[in-house]
Design a binder for these strands. Structure first.
Length: 679
DNA sequence: ATACATACC
DNA sequence: TACTGGTATGTAT
């Protein structure tokens, strides 16, 4: 808890003179900190900071944030969430008061679901996954190449945003995704100077390829999640090399990390091996940096049980908050309160949470790319000319992207963020697919006009805008000779497009292909799918600029059928000098509760334990004594053996700190992409 | 189908 | 001086 003002009261002091503060119209001295703690509490116990430092850091962050538009917007969003939570609680209350028969029924149903999941987990036994995550990747590369940075706090990024920070910086509370000026202040307050290093994507990509090369030896079908992480299915490798044992897994994890460090001349990685992708991912983060964690099957349930829900990939800040309102903090809590979750969450969310809590992976086959987008932030302005030019730039950038990927889009969405950080989106269907900047621009400009028209008028100027973006969706592949010169357009080798093109040629009249009507192609077997997966990672190769130039286009590509137009696009109204920013629509996202089948609420403490049957019951996680045999530099955390040992290790780890929170590196999209929405 | 929100790196 | 950018997906309307 950060506290404002001088009073260094003990952590319990939460009640400031709130009446006075409110009267001042000030930021509710103390109260705001309490209410919105989670909004600015960037630091966490993995930071390797002690409590005092942590509070000081939070204090600094709060001071710098509290009056910003950004923070005000965060507060607004949080207030909306509170309404959701209140509604959620009301529904739960109704559930508690409902007829016993109803509740009994719900319980039975949940029990059935859990049993089914348990069966599924059983059926998936025997497969082993490894998640490899480079430690502070971008930063590590920079420091390796400039050793003078080694002992300084370093951040890749700039004053606007930090992408990755080294562990020295993290000790001051600096985090990935933290605005740079705050990171700078955090360090300055403690007598250090944060060094910013601009990123060098080319270099990181090259390093990533090196890592990939090392990893492919263990699983040729590995899947890179982004530049700095990868998933490997180790099942075959372990079997073929007679390593399908705990010792074998430890050995493989060690070897993988050593080889990476050797091949990259000093970069370190953390690794997790577990009976599933999700657990492997959690495990790789468990002993970071430069560490590894192995989870054996018989310990999987116990491992999951003690984890905070926040560790589940897909449960973020908001999800954690909502679950907390249900008094659910750990994965064990999820299972113990499955009935409540059933009542409070959508089917999808429930399904997701229960599976996750049991350590079962979601179905997840990486699908085709669904959209291209580009957005730019700039000094908030009302200057329409400026904004229109920005849009044009963005459209051009997107057109290039589409062309280099041999894609066309039939649907674009304009994104507008105002100075107060509120975001608006406007859809704009096109009459046909395009990859031309002019078309994208035309659509975006029209949507923008519409935006201006609905947000300003003769008396009121449209609000100042700080970001514009365009998303191109509804994609189709383009093959073959669509160029004006009639020359054949061939996708670069190694791309998905090339693959599809070849397939197309095989199948039908060769060469003919102009445009595949639908992105979806039938993938006949996993073999083929893997091939595609592989290619996907290369698909970013900058395709040469041999893309045929402009084709003749219909004069207006916008689909007027769906977008009746009553706006005079050509005449932006001049802006009044004064800048009154008008708020956007409140758009009260009223998430209503699941229709509650009123049910019995009694907490059932019954858990599926089939494989884990032999396992002693797990008590809630508790802090153990510290000490343990943890070797900072090459620690292997083996999650196996008696449960108390595991818990002790976890506690040790917590006490010792050292985990890299946001595991660095901006880049590729999420890995499994499971999101939950709790209502 | 559109808009908005959340998550991940 | 001052809170990113790219992609996917879930929820509500």
């Amino acid at each position: 808890m950060a506290k404002e003002g001088a009073a260094e009261q003990p952590t319990s002091s939460r009640q400031p003179p709130s009446s006075t503060a409110a009267a001042d119209g000030g930021p509710l001295y103390g109260q705001a900190e309490k209410d919105y703690h989670h909004l600015f509490n960037f630091t966490n116990n993995k930071a390797g900071m002690d409590k005092v430092d942590r509070e000081k850091a939070n204090q600094t962050i709060y001071e710098m944030s509290k009056n910003s538009s950004y923070f005000k917007n965060e507060q607004r969003k949080d207030d909306n969430r509170k309404e959701d939570i209140d509604r959620m609680k009301a529904h739960l209350e109704a559930y508690r008061n409902s007829q016993p028969e109803m509740r009994l029924k719900a319980e039975q149903s949940v029990r059935g679901v859990l049993q089914r999941l348990e069966k599924e987990r059983e059926s998936k036994r025997g497969s082993w996954w490894c998640h490899v995550d480079m430690d502070m990747f971008y930063c590590a590369v920079e420091i390796r190449d400039d050793p003078s940075l080694k002992d300084k706090p370093v951040a890749v990024g700039g004053p606007g945003m930090i992408c990755t920070a080294n562990y020295v910086a993290r000790r001051y509370g600096v985090r990935a995704a933290m605005p740079g000026f705050i990171g700078k202040k955090l360090c300055a307050d403690q007598g250090a100077e944060l060094v910013f290093v601009g990123g060098n994507m080319q270099k990181y990509q090259a390093e990533s390829m090196t890592v990939r090369r090392v990893l492919s030896e263990f699983d040729p079908h590995l899947k890179m999640g982004s530049l700095d992480e990868a998933f490997l299915n180790l099942t075959d490798y372990l079997k073929e090399n007679d390593l399908d044992s705990h010792e074998g897994r430890v050995k493989v994890a060690t070897e993988i990390r050593e080889k990476i460090t050797e091949a990259t001349r000093g970069l370190t990685a953390s690794a997790g091996i577990a009976p599933g992708r999700m657990m492997a991912k959690i495990a790789s983060d468990f002993n970071k940096p430069n560490g590894q964690t192995i989870i054996e099957e018989r310990d999987a349930a116990g491992f999951m049980d003690s984890l905070s829900v926040r560790k589940i990939p897909g449960v973020g800040k908001v999800g954690e908050h909502k679950l907390e309102a249900l008094n659910i903090k750990t994965c064990r809590d999820i299972l113990d309160n499955a009935v409540l979750i059933t009542q409070a969450c959508s089917d999808k969310s429930t399904q997701f949470l229960l599976r996750a809590a049991m350590g079962i992976d979601g179905e997840g086959r990486a699908s085709e790319r669904k959209s291209f987008s580009c957005e730019r932030t700039f000094r908030a302005t009302q200057d329409r000319k400026f904004l229109e030019e920005k849009l044009r730039d963005i459209a051009e950038s997107l057109a290039e992207d589409l062309k280099s990927h041999f894609m066309r889009s039939r649907h674009i969405t304009l994104k507008v963020k105002t100075a107060d950080f509120k975001v608006k989106q406007l859809a704009m269907p096109l009459s046909r697919s395009t990859d031309e900047a002019d078309d994208i621009d035309a659509g975006a400009q029209r949507a923008f006009s519409k935006y201006i028209d609905t947000h300003g008028d003769d008396t009121k100027a449209p609000p100042a805008i700080r970001l514009l973006g365009i998303k191109c969706a509804n994609l189709t592949h383009v093959f073959g000779g669509t160029g004006p010169d009639g020359e054949e357009r061939e996708a670069p080798k190694g791309t998905i497009d090339y693959f599809l093109q070849q397939q197309q040629k095989q199948k039908g009249g060769k060469g003919k292909a102009s445009e595949v009507g639908d992105i979806s192609i039938e993938i006949e077997d996993d073999e083929q799918m893997d091939q595609i997966d592989q290619m996907g990672d290369n698909a970013d190769a900058p395709a040469g600029d041999d893309h045929p130039g402009n084709q003749l286009l219909l004069p207006d590509i916008i689909d007027l059928e769906e977008w009746e137009e009553d706006v005079d696009v050509n005449h932006p109204q001049p802006q009044p000098p004064s800048c009154s920013s008008s708020p956007c629509q409140p758009a009260p996202s009223s998430a209503s509760l699941q229709p509650s089948l009123p049910l019995p609420l009694p907490q059932k403490r019954q858990l599926p334990q089939s494989s884990a049957a032999a396992q002693p019951k797990q008590p809630a996680p508790k802090r153990g004594k510290k000490g343990g045999k943890r070797n900072q530099d090459a620690a292997t955390v083996c999650v196996s053996g008696p449960m108390d040992a595991l818990l002790k290790r976890m506690a040790d780890r917590k006490a010792a700190g050292g985990g890299g929170g946001g595991s660095s590196a901006a880049g590729g999209g999420g890995v499994d992409g499971e999101c939950i929405e709790l209502d």
